[in-house]
Write a protein that binds this DNA or RNA. Structure first.
Length: 460
RNA sequence: UCCCCAGUAGCUCAGUUGGCAGAGCAGAUGGCUGUUAACCAUCGGGUCCGCGGUUCAAGUCCGUGCUGGGGAGCCA
């Protein structure tokens, strides 16, 4: 018999005869002649209460079934006689599909996040992680919907790459060479004998590729995994994470800022509309201010201020910062958090950063000191979006690459796009996991990605 | 990579001034006529992270290693 999802049964407005559910036992409570089982099938946060009575042929077996066991139950959906739930399933037949022995590590009480990370293969069976990954799925869908509704094309930029994209971070090397016997030429590894005939890495950003498609399809975006081999040991970094990168032709820095604000508001609103029950769990158990923070993002205009203005506010703040605030120095976490969490208490966009702290592809402003860059900062997370208007003027781009010691040969195709029908364009990158952290109030990035990759940790 | 904190039962954690290893939950067994993280009773369960040291005596103090976490840097 075809199973019905618990989500659909709980939404029913009338009793239904002869339905089958399949799921996992969260808890069992026995009474004389009855056993109450809470069944979860992952379709929603809520469990369905199954009432099994001693008239069932395998009642003895049922009272032995434990938390974590997989079951199939057929019966009637009826109004619950007990308090606490509207519907319950009166079992007419129940099959144990897969027993979970008493070594099953999840219990019906709360576990610590650190312990759950050691059983990442089982943690989605908990309420909290089930909710995280349902929201993650819904958020992915919302990203595609946002861009689809606005006529953007979805581009699959490559994961394997020979360019290092401006040195955005340490790279993971990809090779088929025998690591125990690496071929050498002039005492260096001879990559001409490697699979691609050149040194190859995992991508750190799809931006440069996406620009090529913006300069042909108009408005595009990428959404895929990116990799950084940084030895970062923080609650905000993983080695494999997902990034959303829209790129728009005929678009300047202001257009990029407009889109980033609209984008964040749309995604937040979408998750609030579609994931209410799951969000409630986080508002109750993870971050008591969550709903206020999310409503704040939707209702407030993002304050836009130039880097220069930001530096002035910080200098006059009277705060005792660990790191010095001065024009030409990058803003530190503590500075960003002061601005968004204390001074403005809502998201802010900082733009026109000094060129010396930004990569080569950002467009030089007329002052020749700053570039048309922007960062979106949100409370609790800090930088969630980084973007810029790209340098579309061939001679200036080449001069900048020279200045920064980058070889034109390595980026020949990128530079060539400025030679033929070059237009002004802009885009940004959004850290998908960081947005999930913002939306759920979860403070460790390892807890919003199914199987996190961090230094010394790739067990799953 | 740097700074700080932690590691005790399957899980969450207590363990005072160095002096017999503890609780709740989970598990097993039994009880209970509709339970809501059900409840009641009984029972089982320990390399106190590893190694070394101080001491009559170390879970506790010291050194060191490993693992985890928090913060910083780098960044998304």
């Amino acid at each position: 018999m075809k199973r019905i999802r618990i989500l659909n049964l709980l939404r029913s407005d009338k009793p239904i005869d002869n339905v089958t559910i399949m799921g996992w036992i969260r808890t069992r409570r026995d009474s004389k002649g009855f056993s109450f089982l809470e069944i979860n099938d992952g379709s929603c946060l809520k469990n369905l209460q199954v009432v099994a009575d001693s008239s069932l042929a395998n009642y003895e077996e049922i009272t032995k079934s434990s938390t974590g066991s997989a079951v199939s139950v057929t019966g009637s959906l009826i109004e619950s006689q007990g308090k606490g739930q509207t519907w319950e399933l009166k079992a007419e037949g129940m099959e144990i599909l897969g027993l979970a022995p008493d070594t099953f590590p999840l219990q019906k009480k709360r576990h610590g996040d650190e312990f759950l990370r050691t059983i990442a293969h089982l943690r989605p069976r908990t309420n909290k992680y089930g909710a995280v990954f349902r929201i993650r799925s819904e958020l992915s869908f919302a990203i595609h919907k946002f861009f689809k509704d606005r006529g953007f094309q979805y581009i699959h930029t490559p994961v394997l790459t020979a360019s290092d994209c401006e040195g955005a971070g340490e790279l993971f090397k990809v090779t088929t060479l025998d690591l125990d016997n690496v071929p050498k030429k002039d005492r260096k590894t001879d990559f001409s004998l490697d699979f691609f005939g050149a040194a190859t890495n995992l991508t750190v950003s799809g931006q440069l590729s996406a620009e090529m498609f913006a300069l042909s399809l108009g408005d595009v975006y990428t959404f895929g995994p990116t990799f950084r081999a940084e030895n970062s040991n923080t609650s905000r970094h993983v080695a494999e994470f997902w990034m959303v990168e829209p790129e728009m032709a005929f678009s300047d820095l202001n257009d990029a800022m407009d889109l980033s604000e609209e984008f964040l508001k749309y995604l937040t609103g979408h998750v609030m509309d579609e994931c209410g029950a799951d969000l409630e769990l986080f508002a109750k158990h993870v971050d008591k201010n969550l709903m206020a923070t999310l409503n704040g993002l939707i209702s407030s205009g993002f304050t836009r201020l130039s880097y220069k203005e930001a530096v002035e506010i910080l200098s006059k703040s009277g705060q005792n910062f660990e790191f010095e605030v001065a024009f030409g120095k990058d803003l530190q976490s503590e500075h960003e958090r002061y601005l968004t969490e204390r001074y403005f208490q809502h998201p802010v966009i900082i733009y026109n950063y000094p060129k010396n702290i930004k990569p080569f592809y950002m467009r030089i402003n007329d002052d020749n000191k700053t570039v048309a860059a922007m960062d979106v900062l949100v409370p609790n997370i800090g930088e969630i979006i980084g973007g810029s208007q790209r340098e579309e003027r061939l001679n200036i781009l080449e001069a900048r690459m020279n200045e920064m010691g980058l070889s034109k040969k390595d980026y020949w195709w990128y530079v060539e796009s400025r030679e033929y029908g070059s237009v002004y364009h802009s885009g940004f990158g959004l850290g998908f996991e960081r947005l999930l952290m913002f939306l759920t109030g979860i403070t460790n990035i390892r807890d919003v990605i199914p199987f996190p990759r961090t230094p010394n940790s790739i067990s799953f």
